[in-house]
Amino acid sequence: MINRLEATQYLMRHLTNEPVIASCGNPKYDLFSAEDRKENFYMWNSMGMASSTGLGLALARPDKKVIILDGDGAILMNLNSLTTAASKSPPNLIHIIWDNRSYQITGGQATHTAGKANLAQIARGAGFEKVLTLDTLEAFKQALPKVLSEPGPWVVVAITDNCGAPGRPPKSPTYIKHRFMEALGSRR
């Protein structure tokens, strides 16, 4: 199993100015704890919308690789977004799903990936061709250069443990937005 914070830290060491969209729940805590930067977009609610927001950004900005940090609970709430993303297939989209098979933030109740659901198979069925399931930090480290350099779209299902990260990102949605847009040069 992968420690999510360690994997996020490793990922951030390999990024320069790529935008990262972090889902509500724990992905945004890990991202902030690993590295707070202007190119991070922290979602405080709208569960499931990280995948769609990342898709919209990737379509609008083909010049940027867009990384989505999602959770199993969140993507299970917006599974249809995988079919939309696969249909559009922007090559600059990297969708990482931390799959800890639980709703960690509400007390660790099991999600359906703890039962019979398999997110990688769902992603393939939605139409993604580049899909990886990684269950050790070593495998994650080994796969990352390829994921970051080869055209996608990629879906990476990373099987993680249930450890938490200590940091908490800024809470003002408009601060997060303005900072993010400024970094991307997209303010008018």
């Binding site: 977009f41 919308m49 927001t53 919209g56 379509l59 900005r61 939309t84 847009m181």
Partner: peptide
């Protein structure tokens, strides 16, 4: 979500 992402990217 999609129009949000587009707007964040300047479109």
């Amino acid at each position: 979500g999609i129009v949000t992402g587009e707007y964040l990217g300047g479109r």
